[in-house]
């Protein structure tokens, strides 16, 4: 009898990986193309987190129930906690202290 479980597991893993690659690519593109700091932070928070979750879920699906999966879940939990905090700190710092950008964009000149 053909064992379908590894094939289904691999299928799930690759779907997760492709989703993760799309979101991580959009993070990189967004960080370059978006006009100002806040919109870039949006790309850096949401797309990065969705990409990270997808890639980690793919790794967990590929690995199955094991000790390595537990490690991956813990790393994912740390990512879920630390990324919003870092983004919030950057946004708060810019809001309160009016940071001067090193390279000006069109929106900075308009401001």
């Amino acid at each position: 009898m053909i064992d379908f479980l590894p094939s289904i597991r691999q299928l799930f893993a690759f779907v997760f990986f492709i989703t993760g690659i799309y979101f991580l690519l959009s993070t990189a593109v967004g960080l370059i193309r978006f006009p100002n700091l806040y919109t870039r932070l949006h790309a850096g928070s949401k797309c990065l987190m969705a990409g990270g979750i997808s890639v980690f879920m793919g790794c967990i699906a590929l690995e199955g129930i094991s000790f390595v999966s537990l490690k991956l879940i813990i790393i994912l939990a740390f990512l879920l906690i630390t990324n919003p905090i870092a983004i919030h700190v950057i946004a708060k710092f810019d809001n309160n202290y009016n940071l001067i950008p090193k390279v000006y964009t069109k929106e900075d000149f308009e401001k």
Binding site: Y22, S26, F34, H42, C47
Partner: peptide, 24 residues
């Protein structure tokens, strides 16, 4: 997690637009 994916999809759509348009 559901909201993260929904929001990431919206933001990533802007990233691949020819001219990213925002109304922040």
């Amino acid at each position: 997690i559901y909201d993260v994916f929904l929001s990431a999809f919206k933001v990533s759509r802007h990233a691949f637009e020819m001219k990213p348009s925002f109304s922040p």
